[in-house]
């Protein structure tokens, strides 16, 4: 007679299930009673003693560069503001808006569009500071060299892109999607019908360069700052990809803060943050590295009203619908 394969494991299974239930119950009650066990995480509301300022950014650069940038900035802000500063990395644009929406970020570096979206979802949030270059930011249109597309002189000239295949960067990018789409619309190009096929979304500025170089798309649009730095670094082969147009300027990247910073960190805290950011000085060797990583000469004060135009474009293009 063959030995039964299941005799004891049956008992093991039931014991395991019972143990699982107890374990889950025990852990549940532990966590709800002993708040102390969840370090720092629960400091969201009124936990004055261990106030942590959490900062984050849309991932428009490579992650290591972001990490380096925000590590330096965190140290600087911690020293200036006398609070613990924690950098929370996020992998996509909407992830950053979500983190701000749920309150996981106190201070976030957004693009024009994501900043407006974040403020629309968190009532009372404020645009507080931006780089000097963000007052007049631009996008570039690039094309494969062998498409034969000439340099385009003005916005109206974008109409020659009719019938080409085209890619944006991230869906939520201001310079890689929103403003290019808006300028295209001005030139009479509707993204759903004028191109050869539906427009692509490469996911990032770097990926846009890559897929245009690969020929997957004939034309693409991206952040001019990223383009310039890649060209400067020699990462772009001019025989493959060329710049065909640079857009008129618009307001872009900016810092947005949660509404109740003063209540949580003390009166005047938000002003102190702005002061700390704007007093970064390119001539100060300690500050220089930070500004250079941000690609900025300095930070300047900004306000919500500066983004009314972005919001209007967002509504026209259907990227702001609330």
């Amino acid at each position: 007679m063959k030995k039964n394969p299941w005799s004891a494991s049956w008992r093991t299974l039931i014991t395991a299930l019972v143990a699982l239930a107890f374990f889950a119950a025990a852990c549940g009650s532990d966590a709800s009673e002993g708040e102390a066990s969840s370090e720092g995480e629960a400091s969201n509301e009124g936990d004055e003693g261990a106030a942590v300022l959490r900062i984050g950014a849309i991932p428009d650069q490579e992650p290591e560069r972001l990490q380096r940038t925000y590590d330096l900035l965190s140290d600087y802000l911690a020293a200036e503001l006398d609070v613990t500063v924690e950098y929370v990395p996020v992998t996509d644009y909407q992830g950053a808006v979500t983190a701000f929406r749920v309150g996981d970020l106190d201070l976030a570096w957004f693009g024009g569009l994501t900043g407006v979206q974040a403020r629309l979802e968190v009532e009372g949030a404020n645009a507080i500071a931006q780089r000097d270059i963000d007052e007049a930011f631009t996008s570039v249109f690039i094309a494969r060299a062998d498409t034969g597309i000439d340099t385009i002189a003005d916005v109206a000239g974008l109409s020659v892109l009719e019938g080409r295949s085209f890619t944006f960067g991230s869906e939520s990018s201001t310079s890689g999607r929103l403003m290019p789409q808006s300028f295209l619309a001005e030139a009479g190009i509707e993204i759903d019908s004028s191109f050869d096929g539906a427009p692509g979304f490469s996911g990032s500025h770097d990926a846009t360069i890559e897929v245009v170089a690969a020929g997957s798309f004939e034309v693409g649009a991206l952040n001019s700052e990223v383009w310039d730095s890649r060209v400067e670094a020699g990462d772009v082969d001019p025989s493959e990809v060329i710049e065909i147009f640079r857009t008129p300027p618009y307001y872009d990247y900016h810092w947005v803060s949660q509404p109740e910073l003063d209540a949580r960190f003390g009166d005047g805290f938000q002003d102190n943050v702005v002061a700390a950011l704007t007093s970064l000085d390119a001539d100060d060797p300690d500050h220089e590295a930070i500004l250079e990583l941000f690609g900025a000469g300095s930070f300047i004060v900004t306000e919500n009203a500066n983004y009314a135009a972005i919001e209007a474009v967002g509504r026209e293009t259907g990227l702001i619908r609330s």
Binding site: M1, K2, K3, N4, W6, S7
Partner: peptide, 8 residues
């Protein structure tokens, strides 16, 4: 304590 299926 034998599994029943080991019985005749």
């Amino acid at each position: 304590f034998s599994p029943t299926d080991t019985l005749s």
